[in-house]
Write a protein that binds this DNA or RNA. Sequence first.
DNA 1: CAAGTATTCAAGCGTTCGATTGAATATGAG
DNA 2: CTCATATTCAATCGAACGCTTGAATACTTG
Lengths: 238, 238
Amino acid sequence: MASPNRRFKDAIYEQFARIGKAIAAPKRLELLDLLCQGPRTVEALAEQASISVASASQHLQVLRAAHLVEAEKKGTYVECRLADREVCDFYVSLRRLSEARLAEVRQVTGAFLTERGAMEVVEADELVRRVRDGEVTLLDVRPSEEYRAGHIPGALSVPLGELEKRLAELPRGRELVAYCRGPYCVMSIEAVALLRKKGVAARRMGEGVVDWRARGLRVERGPAGGARKRGEPARPSR
Amino acid sequence: MASPNRRFKDAIYEQFARIGKAIAAPKRLELLDLLCQGPRTVEALAEQASISVASASQHLQVLRAAHLVEAEKKGTYVECRLADREVCDFYVSLRRLSEARLAEVRQVTGAFLTERGAMEVVEADELVRRVRDGEVTLLDVRPSEEYRAGHIPGALSVPLGELEKRLAELPRGRELVAYCRGPYCVMSIEAVALLRKKGVAARRMGEGVVDWRARGLRVERGPAGGARKRGEPARPSR
DNA sequence: CAAGTATTCAAGCGTTCGATTGAATATGAG
DNA sequence: CTCATATTCAATCGAACGCTTGAATACTTG
């Protein structure tokens, strides 16, 4: 026993399992999800994932040990980011697989969405065409740093917290569609709820920037340059 | 604390982590790898992964609980198979990510291959063209059940154990390229070593059927119908 | 019906994991 | 230099994991 072949295979599968172990904890997945939206400090990650800073630090060390995440000192802060675009793609494929294979995911999501009264969801398939044709206005309701790190071309940056006082800025005449970090992020749900309460028609897109890019569509970087010219289309690339 | 949003997110990420936990153990990954080649009984899986039957049974239950694997009673045996094509794709993307991110994988593989003197590896990019043009003969050296479950079009089924006594059958005049389960399977290495010892020029392709399919190329099913007509090409589909 | 075989179940044991706590380290500001 | 802040380290504890062993279950075959 313990032939060279066996030892080789054991070594290889043990390496593969390093990635597996890294994504075996719910909180680490939540951290990865957040990091897919853009770099963040340890503190910000801890707060957004509702865990202690020490706990976040430990989880991030596991992710770094698996070479999924990189960290860089920036002054007093440590900025964490995904090690590679590929990590984000892998996370998305895990999410997709979970949705496909685990009935619980669909069930929990469905129950939550109906409870929130957020039934109407725009399919991205439909949206791609309508955004290109300039039929809808996309609202990116994530924090502005995340918008800067990457957003759907043509989208307006209106962070959820500022939405109420910036209602007047919103362009009229075209349908509003809000999106946020992804299908399991609640910001766009709350944005749509707020808009409706104010009498503004709006719908929610479940997919986020990450899904948009996974479709091979172009993603734009850079600051929120105020209102975008009306007719500017968001063309798919690649 | 424990807002509805938080509880929803915790529930969702916990579901995602079910898949993560399922692929967090090296032996479960090895079982998945084997199952990517085709269905197998618990006993066969245990033997091929070098673990006890009870241990294999337990791992398979974990994989089944994550809905990655399905089992069906067939007489006295229980036949296990991947729940979906998508699971195989996910496994391949994990493997790819490991190769990309973990230097240890590349290092361990490199060391093993040089030790085995199996330096020359045919790149599949090159091979796609040459197989199509009928310049090479592909040898599938896996067990014949796996060939039947899916093989590269045009490949000859010559299981490693039968290779020596079937040397005479091998077509002459074209280069021989052996493949097996994938880059970390040793059967094609041993096949090439044997062929060379017998004075037959041959090379190894690291990729397996799974990688072939991941490239969007056609995979053929069905029994090993003896020697295939010479000129029959293996065309990519899709 | 009985015997044999394939698989699963149940319990035990050592190891690893994840969260908490409090202390330690490092960096920039005053 | 000292202080405040951000992050990591170290130790601890309960829970979960993975493997082993031996018994139990289910199914086919004679």
